[in-house]
Amino acid sequence: MSKQDNVFKSLVNSFGLPRLLIAGFLLLLFCIAPIGHISITQSISDVLMRFGQNAVLVLAMVPMIHSGCGLNFGLPLGIIAGLLGGTLAIELNVVGAASFFVAIIFSVLFAIVFGYVYGILLNRIKGSEMMIATYVGYAAVAFMCMMWLLLPYKHPQMVWGYAGRGLRTTISTEGFYYHVLSDFLSFKIFGITIPTGSILFFAFLALCIWAFLHTKSGTAMTAVGSNPVFARACGINVNKIRTLSVIMSTALGAIGILVYQQSFGFIQLYMGPFYMALPAVSAILIGGASVNKASIANVVIGTLLFQGIVTMTPSVMNSIIHTDMSEVIRIVVSNGMILYALTRKSEATL
């Protein structure tokens, strides 16, 4: 009995109780899914599709967590860079897969500028990054709402038909980069659709981040996050490294939203990016990251678990108890996870 207890305890310790609960809940959902006549293969396909859609956005948390800037509640800033890149690519009428690359180039350029300014701001308010990041993100979204109305976009697929100006709230990526990654090399196995392109693209970016963390600068970034005083004593320019991490996070956010759009099919402007930070933040926390430690594994596990819950709860709930409580569960789980992380001192669980 006590031995079992110990096994359980060590499992909890190594995996983290909240994550264990969430994983268990997800498993339960999969187990009872057949009762509600839900196709498991379809569910897994959905989870994978959403994984490909969101993983890069979650990856965007990693550099800033590594450098000790905390959870990037300012993700909307990166998303705005992505929106600018995407709309510019369409405005220039670059069609097909090429539009995706043009969009990425533009968005990364914007992200570098935004990230640089944002990074300098965050360096001046060390210790209160998270609260200010939240409001920087919101203010930027609201500011861009005005810009979307005013910027001289002309492409007929994007502007309001009746006024001839001002961007629409949602713009289809059809004909541009719609599914350029999701359909690339995708195949079906046992009835499960694998979005190979999206996953490969994510893997490529994750590999880049992983590799970066093994270089001299990457090592410095981890050290800055782990103990900034130590890093400074070793001759590191802490502010520079932090700014670099913010630029990287912002750029990944920008690419992340493009990946999201190509899979989702629409560019969502105006208040669209408003609440996109919270799901990404809670996903990486569910994956086992803490406020100052995160790894690629946290990203993968977290995105799978989070998207699993988001996908499975509505369908299972609907079919079993005929009530859609999924929204409530999503809110409680994701924000509960963030609260849990904020009230803990630090130390990673993976």
Binding site: T222, A223, S226, N227, F230, E347
Partner: peptide, 9 residues
């Protein structure tokens, strides 16, 4: 502990 070491590394 404060300056000399990366305690978590």
């Amino acid at each position: 502990r404060g300056v000399g070491l990366l305690l978590d590394e």
